[in-house]
Design a binder for these strands. Structure first.
Lengths: 240, 240
DNA sequence: CCTTGCCTGCACGCTGCCTGAAAGTTTTCT
DNA sequence: AGAAAACTTTCAGGCAGCGTGCAGGCAAGG
């Protein structure tokens, strides 16, 4: 089921990202999918390379693994900002026990995501940080499709004006559907984006969550979540 | 239905700050978060640099480490004021010894914070000093959300008109929640802002204090402190 | 009619969260 | 200074919500 599926994410983008990660597999995963999402991505595989890359390319945001072979993430940031750069950061951190270093990562409008993460989650954080730190631009945090509304900041969801409570996975799935409204998404694609990259389960879980979502947010007319047998799912208004 | 969208950081000011600190990590911590809080921050890493920076940039307030490699903080202030500047100061000081000298200086409307400090505490002091020294501005010292009131100067808290006694940490946590009302705060974020930067404990302490706060200030309807499982906490009026 | 893919109820185990209580620390009082 | 009180931090038990797999049933398409 692995395959990475191509699609152009709608908007918010053209932002320049610098992705810093020493694990080649994860770096490839990240740069490929962030490019598809519409970002202008450059990469580095060490802290010192990251610092000089940041000087040359002046990215709008840095995706930065805190655990690097040479410098750690904090040093990288300090050096970058010593040079007068105010670049916001989304840190990548390991989730394991001895995570002493996981302090101060949310300061200055920055944020972090723990490994393993889902691409949905990472891109959501990136969007949120860009929204916060890019002034004047005022990218809305509220996704709207038909009478369905989802607020990325407050995690509130409404259908036909009614508040609906969603679990974290339900929320991520719905956000992914809404960001890709009118686009058909295969189960493999959904699994690749909404579930963590180390998930080794079965497609059926997507069916389950589609089912949950239908019960909670698609129990009124018009139906918005549609099944395309043998192909996937799509969020769209019924055919005219 | 939905909440009121878009809030910007409590940015009380756009006030110009000069931050003087020789430890690179702490300087980065301070400048990043004070900038995000809406201040216009410039920095210096030595006493002599601070004096000339103060002459050039004429800050509204100086955040000043008393222990510096060349001059100490008192010298810095003396030189600055010899030049006719009467800039207010928030000192950063180690917990031991020289308290006496500082006590004297707080009489002029200045204040001090002992290391290690929490960002909540530092920004609260900065706001308080600016409030005192900036005339006419009339920044209120009283935070109000629904029937919850918190006075930053007297440290009094009321819920539904009833006086409530809070411990220092409870007070700081509630103030942080109120300053960020309607914004979802992760436990990591709360830890980063409300607890001292050298705290090496775990998230559970945030849960404990949320629990204490609920018992003291959120034991009546409507409930204002809400848990978002897997995401964080938020202070808001219940959904419509 | 049969095949294939999808839907959904159910059950199990896990995770995140809440809270009481104990231990450790700081502050206040005498 | 010593004792008492207040506060902070940790630990552990309990609980509800959640993620996941399974299996029986249903619908669509040939």
């Amino acid at each position: 089921m692995g395959g990475m599926a191509a699609q152009t994410q709608p908007k918010q983008s053209e932002a320049k990202l610098l992705v810093v990660e020493d694990d080649a597999n994860i770096l490839e995963l990240l740069s490929a999918s962030l490019r598809f999402a519409g970002f202008d991505v450059s990469t580095a595989t060490s802290g010192s390379a990251a610092v000089s890359a940041a000087k040359n390319t002046t990215p709008d945001l840095v995706v930065l693994d805190v655990m690097l072979p040479d410098l750690d993430g904090f040093e990288v940031i300090r050096l970058m900002r010593e040079g007068g750069q105010r670049t916001p950061v989304v840190f990548l951190t390991a989730r394991d026990g001895t995570d002493d270093k996981i302090r101060g990562l949310t300061l200055g409008g920055d944020d972090y995501v723990t490994k393993p993460f889902s691409l949905e989650e990472l891109t959501a954080r990136i969007r949120a940080v860009l929204r916060r730190t890019t002034q004047g631009d005022e990218e809305p945090s509220r996704l709207v499709f038909a009478d369905l509304e989802l607020d990325e900041e407050t995690h509130e969801v409404y259908r036909a004006g009614q508040r609906v409570q969603l679990s974290p996975t339900e929320f991520k799935l719905l956000r992914y559907l809404m960001l890709n409204a009118n686009r058909v998404l295969s189960k493999a694609q959904i699994l690749d984006h909404v579930w963590k990259y180390d998930f080794r389960g079965d497609d059926n879980i997507v069916e389950s969550y589609i089912s949950y979502l239908r019960r909670k947010v698609d129990n009124v007319q018009p139906r918005l979540i549609h099944t395309l047998r043998g192909v996937g799912y799509v969020l769209r208004k019924p055919a005219v």
